[in-house]
Design a protein around this nucleic acid. Structure first.
Length: 315
DNA sequence: TACTCGTGGTG
DNA sequence: TCACCAAGAGT
């Protein structure tokens, strides 16, 4: 049970200071300008575990190409996955595709404007449902993302980092801190996220630029070290790395890739189209069982299909 | 609950 | 350099 330090600061004061800071310093992101609810939803899905700088150009392309859910729902899955490019976690693209289909079928092509209906969409969890309800529809909802969790952990609790997994106590705290006024609550959610993303960062927080340095429980406690060791994310040699390399090959290919090509570096050179990506795959020196697992996993997840002609993106 | 699922910038 | 990290969701 972590020791919780009382902030001993009236929430209203935090609201005023952080919201003012946000209005002066908010980054000019395209989905923060006049933007459809669909645009907000797309941005939130893309931003799941993917930095803003990589999302922005792809988001611009997507909204120009598929300005409404119905446009997107009508696109072939293969095109969706190619357009997703290297954002990572391509299952998100398929889930957004499925969500668009549901929006067309069950919501007359309009993004639902409330938390429960948003939460029911594929790929939309508690964070994304709350974020879209707030940022697209101005609703007062408790938004809890990794940035907000970290700001709360430091500013209010006095710890260097939040717990490894989201706890009920954190959601309760976020709800307790939420301004009563709808518009102010929307601003607050965006402002705390921004503070965590720009100032109160995970590794090297810019405390010298923080608008609430004086009120920070973590600073008051002498900036204690984290009480646990953050768990690493192994990558080299993992199945995930192989899956990613195979997906890169399939995205580059305009026709099915025979399984032999995935092994034969010499044959691969005759296919200029996919040669670079195949080269990267071969460079991994993947063991046969590992490649088999990766391929099977991609098929199970609907990211790839296997026909007589070989592996290809789903139709 | 703990694990899986991509990708690339960066301190 | 290399481990960490990023507007999480699903199982």
């Amino acid at each position: 049970m972590p020791v919780t330090a009382s902030p001993n600061v009236p929430p209203a004061e935090l609201h005023k200071v952080i919201n003012s800071w946000f209005q002066e310093n908010a980054r000019d992101l395209p989905w923060r300008r006049s933007c459809s609810a669909w645009g907000i939803l797309v941005s939130e899905i893309m931003l799941q575990q993917t930095p803003v700088v990589r999302v922005q150009p792809v988001w611009e392309q997507w909204l120009a190409r598929w300005p409404a859910p119905a446009d997107f729902a009508a696109a072939p899955a293969a095109e969706v996955l190619r357009a997703w490019g290297k954002l990572g976690y391509p299952r998100r693209a398929l889930r957004l595709h499925a969500a668009a289909a549901e929006i067309v079928e069950k919501h007359r092509g309009t993004v639902p404007d409330n938390y429960p209906e948003l939460l029911a969409l594929p790929g939309v969890g508690t964070y994304t449902a709350a974020a879209v309800a707030a940022f697209a529809f101005g609703r007062r909802t408790t938004v809890v993302d990794t940035n907000i969790r970290r700001v709360h952990a430091r500013l209010v609790i006095g710890q260097a980092l939040p717990a490894p997994a989201l706890t009920a106590a954190e959601t309760t705290l976020a709800t307790d801190l939420l301004p009563e006024d709808d518009a102010e609550s929307v601003l607050w959610n965006a402002a705390v996220m921004e503070l965590g993303a720009v100032i109160c960062t995970a590794r090297s927080p810019k405390c010298g630029q923080c608008p609430v340095l004086e009120q920070c429980a973590w600073i008051a406690a002498g900036q204690p070290e984290p009480t646990y060791i953050p768990k690493g994310q192994p990558w080299a040699g993992t199945d995930r790395q192989v899956r990613g390399a195979v997906m890169a090959v399939l995205r580059a290919a305009s026709s099915p890739i025979h399984a032999d090509l995935l092994w034969d570096a010499e044959a691969a050179k005759r296919h200029a189209e996919v040669a670079p990506e195949l080269g990267k795959l071969h460079k991994l020196n993947t063991h046969a069982p590992q490649l088999e697992r990766a391929l099977a996993g991609l098929v199970v997840d609907g990211l790839a299909q296997l026909t007589d002609a070989g592996y290809h993106l789903p139709n």
